[in-house]
């Protein structure tokens, strides 16, 4: 299979995930073009995290298929998917607590995407990009929330992914920190990595994304460039239009 430039790097085709009676993801289809930043948004409980867990192999879909670079990945073990070049940054940072920042990132560089690499150079570059170089020798245990989020990104970058799945990298950050993360995402894309982003911070996701997919109650309800999605009446009804009901904590 030859990957033409227009070929999407990730294709989600008719994917459904049921948990006993509950349908968390219902027949969702979308394509992520190579080299883009795509945003996945939707109200709480819409199925965004389930979709992420399906793409990264945490769950196997009940129906449908997921293709990465033309090859089916649904049902593969998570570590195989990671070796094929998908990395994930968690919303709730999961550092290796007793290891230093450097070793955390180094493990990303030693594993992750299969193939030749210069571990030291990759590690240094990831630390540099995320601005963590000065904290390299600190144990991950004592980092601030903002630093932990950047460590999460640094470790994912060090895994040299072709697709980075970032789960709410801006959640709980102040505007300056958010700006920093948006900047990092842009630089990652500039380095040729495709980014799929779940994000609640609307201004951030609108600013950074090329394409946005909207899910609600397990279904995809809209897709398109940010400005178009923002005007979509279904999206407004499901999400943007009723902030008082959907965002009690805001």
């Amino acid at each position: 299979m030859n990957a033409a430039p227009a070929e999407p790097i990730l294709r989600v085709v008719g994917v459904t995930k049921r948990f006993r009676g509950l349908v968390a993801v219902n027949d969702v289809t979308f394509d992520v073009p190579a080299g883009s930043i795509c945003g996945l948004i939707g109200p709480n409980g819409a199925g965004k995290s389930s979709l992420f867990n399906l793409i990264t192999g945490y769950y196997a879909p009940s129906a449908g298929e997921i293709r990465f670079d033309g090859r089916r990945i649904d049902g593969l073990d998570t570590y195989r998917i990671a070796q094929m070049g998908i990395a994930r940054a968690f919303q709730i940072a999961k550092p290796f607590p007793e290891l230093s920042v450097l070793d955390n990132v180094r493990i990303g560089a030693l594993f992750g995407h299969a193939g030749a690499r210069n571990v030291a150079a990759v590690t240094a570059a990831a630390l540099e990009l995320t601005g963590l170089a000065s904290l390299a020798d600190r144990p991950a245990l004592g980092l601030t929330v903002g630093d932990l989020r950047r460590l999460e990104l640094a470790r994912a970058i060090a895994a040299r992914p072709r697709l980075l799945a970032a789960d709410e990298p801006c959640a709980g950050l102040n505007p300056t920190e958010t700006e920093g993360v948006v900047d990092i995402l842009r630089q990652i894309r500039a380095a040729g990595v495709t980014v799929l982003l779940v994000e609640h911070d609307m201004p951030a996701v609108m600013r950074v994304s090329d394409t946005i997919f909207v899910v609600d109650a397990g279904r995809k309800i809209a897709e398109g460039p940010p400005e178009q999605v923002a005007r979509d009446p279904r999206v407004i009804a499901a999400y943007l239009g009723t902030p008082a009901e959907d965002a009690p904590a805001a």
Binding site: Y79, A87, F90, E98, F111, H113
Partner: peptide
């Protein structure tokens, strides 16, 4: 340190 995260990293 964290087996699930380790697997997620490949």
């Amino acid at each position: 340190e964290d087996e699930d995260t380790a697997r997620m990293l490949g």
